[in-house]
């Protein structure tokens, strides 16, 4: 492992200035992904700036919604009674991710910034445009079971690994960021970017920008919401596909729907077309399948030495339909 310097400043402004001043500096949060990358040689920073002691770590009421400090541990967020009651999709997504130990370590700000678990990205002996721009993509034509079917490019077919981020996408969360030029607020849906010809950039954040809080808007539709994750074992594995969904039904008609997919794209995938197909429709299996088909019309499965990932289209269709069927049966 390459040697690095370590600083633990007392406030966010100092931390941002420290990272912004050095191109090879990085923020250190819970470390659950970054420390592994140091060991694997995936990233080789010259300076780590520890932000765990300085980030806000409380959850406060915010105009009917919730403001979550970036330092709040994933386990603490999932256990919060307000999250469990008003945003069950977020609690369930958090609890679907990683293990009890990792959820105690991982933070609200760090979770959405974790990097793909693409085997080739993590294996420094193989080409990877995300790790080493311009070197090629070993995943294309390789083992693609975990890879994208939506929004991929000829340069990168990696998927975003976070469960939490899929729920935040469906919930129209806001992201508060502190950077060298001051504060700004992003819609959560604008945070992550598709790979295009620059897969080394997972998000639109500039070097030195630090997530300080995530804000959940008041969202009555989220009271009837859930997260369903399909993976190769019952627990402690990344998603093959996942669905975050919220449904509002009035007089046997779907009056509002929020849908996002995980495990299928370089970003958490907000399924606007599926939402559009649901709004105004009668809840039924036909409606739910039609919504999946509307979103997946442009899906492009990958071939692969492991049989590829075309299975994700029917799997995601059924996962969405099953999630919506169960939500439609719930008491509002």
């Amino acid at each position: 492992m390459r040697p690095f310097d370590y600083q633990a400043p007392a406030d966010a402004g100092t931390a941002v200035a420290a990272v912004a001043a050095r191109p090879d500096a990085a923020f250190l949060g819970g470390g659950t992904n970054l420390v592994d990358h140091l060991r694997l040689g995936v990233t080789e920073p010259g300076l780590l700036v520890d932000v765990t002691g300085l980030l806000p770590n409380g959850i406060s009421d915010d105009g009917g919604g919730l403001r979550i400090g970036a330092g709040v541990a994933n386990a603490d967020l999932a256990a919060d009674p307000r999250v469990r009651r008003h945003y069950p999709v977020l609690a369930r997504a958090l609890l679907s991710g990683a293990s009890g130990q990792l959820r105690n370590m991982a933070t609200t700000g760090g979770n959405p910034l974790q990097r793909t678990r693409c085997l080739y990205f993590q294996d420094v002996t193989t080409p990877c445009n995300k790790r080493s721009p311009g070197s090629g993509c070993a995943a294309i034509g390789g083992a693609t079971r975990q890879h994208a079917i939506l929004g991929a490019s000829e340069h990168c077919i990696a998927t975003h690994p976070s469960d939490m981020a899929v729920a935040l996408s469906a919930l129209d969360a806001q992201v508060e960021v502190l950077g060298p030029d001051g504060e700004r607020t992003l819609a959560f849906g604008e945070l992550h970017r598709l790979p295009g010809d620059a897969p080394e950039r997972d998000t639109v954040l500039e070097h030195g920008e630090l997530i300080t809080a995530i804000v959940l808007p008041p969202l009555p539709v989220a009271a009837r919401s859930d997260y369903r994750k399909v993976r190769d074992r019952a627990s402690y594995a990344f998603a093959l596909v996942s669905v975050a969904a919220a449904l509002e039904i009035t007089d046997a008609t779907i009056t509002d729907a929020r849908i996002a997919f995980g495990g299928v794209a370089h970003t958490p995938w907000r399924a606007h077309r599926a939402e559009q197909a649901l709004r105004g429709a009668t809840p039924s299996d036909e409606t739910f399948h039609a919504a999946a088909q509307a979103e997946l019309a442009d899906a492009r499965p990958q071939d692969g030495v492991d049989g590829g990932n075309a299975f994700k289209i029917p799997l995601l269709t059924r996962t969405l339909a099953g999630t919506l069927r169960d939500l439609a049966r719930q008491e509002a």
């Binding site: 370590y6 633990a8 250190l28 470390g31 659950t32 420390v35 592994d36 780590l48 520890d50 765990t52 009890g100 130990q101 990792l102 105690n104 370590m105």
Partner: peptide, 19 residues
């Protein structure tokens, strides 16, 4: 490598001692 740090279970392998 699981240990309790300040009463909470964490992974000691992914924790930098300096933190």
């Amino acid at each position: 490598c699981t240990v309790l740090v300040d009463g909470v279970r964490v992974l000691a392998c992914l924790t930098l001692a300096v933190t």
